[in-house]
Amino acid sequence: DEEIEKWIETLLKRNISLRVNGKDLEIGSEEFKEWVEKFIKEV
Score class of each variant (00 low, 15 high):
Lys13His: 08
Glu3Val: 12
Glu2Ser: 14
Ile16Phe: 00
Leu12Lys: 06
Lys33Asn: 11
Gly28Leu: 07
Ser29Val: 06
Val36Asn: 00
Ile27His: 05
Glu9Arg: 00
Arg19Tyr: 04
Val43Lys: 06
Glu37Asn: 06
Glu5Phe: 13
Glu34Ser: 10
Ile27Gln: 04
Ile4His: 07
Asp24Met: 14
Glu30Met: 12
Glu30Lys: 11
Ile40Glu: 02
Glu31Pro: 04
Glu2Ile: 12
Phe39Ala: 05
Glu26Arg: 13
Lys38Leu: 07
Leu11Phe: 09
Thr10His: 14
Lys33Pro: 01
Trp7Phe: 09
Val20Tyr: 02
Asp24Glu: 13
Ile4Met: 08
Glu30His: 11
Val43Ser: 08
Leu12Gln: 07
Lys23Cys: 12
Phe32Val: 03
Val36Phe: 13
Ile4Gln: 02
Lys23Asn: 06
Ser29Phe: 11
Glu26Met: 11
Lys6Arg: 12
Arg14Met: 15
Val36Pro: 00
Ile8Gly: 00
Trp35Gln: 01
Gly28His: 03
Glu37Ile: 08
Ile16Lys: 03
Asn15Val: 14
Trp35Cys: 07
Leu12Asp: 03
Arg14Glu: 15
Glu5His: 12
Glu2His: 10
Lys38Pro: 00
Leu12Phe: 02
Arg14Gln: 15
Glu26Val: 14
Asn21Gly: 05
Val43Ala: 10
Lys33Ser: 08
Asp24Gly: 05
Lys13Gln: 14
Ile8Pro: 00
Glu30Ala: 13
Glu3Lys: 10
Leu11Trp: 05
Glu42Trp: 14
Glu37Trp: 05
Lys23Gly: 03
Glu30Pro: 14
Glu37Gly: 08
Glu5Tyr: 15
Thr10Ser: 12
Val43Asp: 04
Ser29Asp: 04
Phe32Asp: 01
Gly22Tyr: 07
Ile16Arg: 02
Thr10Gln: 13
Gly22Met: 10
Glu3His: 13
Glu9His: 01
Ile27Gly: 02
Asn15Phe: 14
Asn21Pro: 03
Ile4Ser: 03
Ser29Ala: 05
Phe32Gln: 01
Ile40Asp: 01
Glu37Ser: 07
Lys23Glu: 06
Lys13Trp: 02
Gly22Arg: 01
Lys33Cys: 15
Ser29Ile: 07
Ile4Leu: 14
Ile27Tyr: 08
Lys38Gln: 13
Gly28Ser: 05
Glu2Gly: 11
Glu9Ala: 01
Gly22Phe: 06
Glu31Tyr: 08
Ile4Asn: 02
Val36Leu: 15
Glu31Asn: 08
Ile40Arg: 04
Asp1Val: 11
Glu42Leu: 13
Arg19Pro: 04
Arg19Ile: 12
Lys41Trp: 06
Lys41Gln: 09
Arg14Tyr: 11
Leu18Cys: 13
Ile4Asp: 03
Glu34Lys: 12
Glu3Pro: 09
Ile16Thr: 06
Val36Tyr: 09
Glu26Asn: 08
Glu26Ala: 11
Ser29Cys: 09
Lys38Trp: 09
Leu11Tyr: 01
Phe39Met: 11
Lys41Pro: 01
Val36Glu: 01
Glu2Asp: 13
Ser17Ile: 12
Asn21Thr: 02
Asp24Tyr: 11
Trp35Ile: 05
Phe32Leu: 07
Ile27Glu: 03
Leu12Ala: 05
Glu34Val: 08
Phe39Gly: 01
Phe32His: 01
Glu9Val: 01
Lys41Met: 06
Asp1Lys: 14
Leu18Lys: 01
Glu30Ile: 12
Ile8Thr: 01
Glu26Leu: 13
Asn15Asp: 09
Lys41Asp: 04
Glu30Phe: 09
Leu25Pro: 03
Gly22Pro: 02
Lys6Phe: 09
Arg14Ile: 15
Ile16Met: 01
Glu42Val: 11
Leu18Pro: 04
Leu12Tyr: 03
